[in-house]
Amino acid sequence: MINKTVTNVREACEGIKDGMTFMLGGFGLSGIPENCIAELVRRGVRGVTCISNNAGVDDFGLGLLLQKKQIKKMISSYVGENAEFERQMLSGELEVELIPQGTLAQRCQAAQSGIPAFFTPAGYGTEVGEGKESREFNGKMHLMEYAFKADFGFVKAWKGDTAGNLIFKGTARNFNPNMAGAATITVAEVEELVPAGELDPNHIHIPGIFVQRIFKGERYEKRIEQRTVRTRK
């Protein structure tokens, strides 16, 4: 088996430069590549574009990069949880492209699949559609959307093996499988890394061909954004 393992997050992030475009998996704070984000903060990489459904909260997730003003542009679908984000956006310090969530997922998927563009009805007739090519299919208007282009993709999985095969858990799966293989280099961080052959091939969500580097994350905080519970009767 081709070995995709790197020793740690530092090695996993080799080659990262200012001005690059990154894809980062996660929905809210669930399934985010915590260790890679910490490394991006540590490296102080600047002027980057981040493709991520959300922008973290003020003091966790991508909010950590925002705090340090390392992000030039965000491409997201929902950013309502982050006050610093909103401040930087409204003041014009941060360039923001808000796009529909399904379009975001499909633009990742298209990049992964080698599909340069596709049509979707989402956003037609709204400001999302301004300046975009539109076309009617089956009596309904659609917008043409392009596959993303990114230098690095950072995904987080539950389990992985040395061949780069990945298994996700619960709703921490979200954008991670769609971003794997969608950037020039895909870095996967996992909670548990096992030798190739230990994972049941039937259970693998993303085959290792989509992953260039894999490592076991040193630490996972896995912060809960909205703790909601019910009381026992």
Binding site: Y78, P100, P121, A122, Y124
Partner: peptide, 12 residues
């Protein structure tokens, strides 16, 4: 500006 999340896909 919170963003549209999945709302645009849903309503379209």
């Amino acid at each position: 500006v919170k963003g549209m999340g999945g709302a645009m896909d849903l309503v379209a």
